[in-house]
Design a protein around this nucleic acid. Structure first.
Lengths: 126, 126
DNA sequence: GATCTATATTCCAATAAAGGAATGTAGTTG
DNA sequence: CAACTACATTCCTTTATTGGAATATAGATC
């Protein structure tokens, strides 16, 4: 059952926090790491977990890995529904809200991501 | 994070199937067991898991235990959102759809539940 | 090419989850 | 009260998950 796989991805706090941040757009690992304040291994492993199960995609940009949610066209209806549901739940959740606030403060645009978009330089990220 | 607890409940196929059935209304264990076709221990343990975490309530009716989702007034907004999301996802899911079909065939009203409602006799369930 | 940065992977230990077999228990019926 | 029904719980084994320490790797820079 594919649906269970989605819930397996959502049932860990770290992964929930990562997905919450990625709902704002693509981000490099170091930004994710900085916002969560968790160890490199922990963040990397959970991103790997999500990637294997197709909840995120990864692409390399120089030294940085950019993680993102699958493009809307590539999301199953179950995934779409659950991402929307998650977004609805963010407001009730102190940790998730605080993460979003930290992300905004960190740098409006993640440098590597900005480079991908062609709207920024890719020097120095975290 | 309360939200994670909800996802922990949803991330197992058996529990997902149980919740899916309970979205139709209260049911006794033997009906749940009959629809799932799983062992008594397995069903009972997962119901216990859900009960401890507040996703279902249980009440005794004679020999039978009636499980139900919490009354809408007692559902957190996160739970409400996720139950709605789950219901949206049922259509995409063969197992969940098939379970609902089996439930309807089994007996339109679960005998113990009917007894609770005062609309049926409570003799013989499964 | 040595070094640095950003990230992934391997190895390992601790903890949790899943489910069967057997047993216990609450309430019912004869 | 003995037997039965419907569930729950305990004990145990297998397997999965989590995360740290250490190490590896890819690409950039000097």
């Amino acid at each position: 059952m594919k649906l269970v796989k989605i819930y397996e991805c959502l049932c860990d706090e770290t992964r929930l926090r990562l997905l919450n941040l990625l709902l704002q757009g693509p981000l490099c690992v170091c930004h994710l790491q900085a916002v969560l304040g968790e160890s490199q291994v922990k963040v990397s492993k959970h991103l790997g977990y999500l990637k294997v199960r197709g909840l995120v995609t990864a692409s390399r940009q120089g030294n940085w890995m950019i993680y993102a949610l699958p493009a809307p066209a590539n999301r199953s209806s179950e995934l779409e529904a659950n991402l929307a549901c998650l977004q609805d739940c963010v407001q009730e959740n102190a940790v998730l809200k605080s993460d979003l606030a930290k992300l905004k403060k960190l740098d409006l645009a993640c440098a590597p991501v900005a480079a991908v978009r062609g709207t920024g330089r890719s020097i120095g990220c975290c």
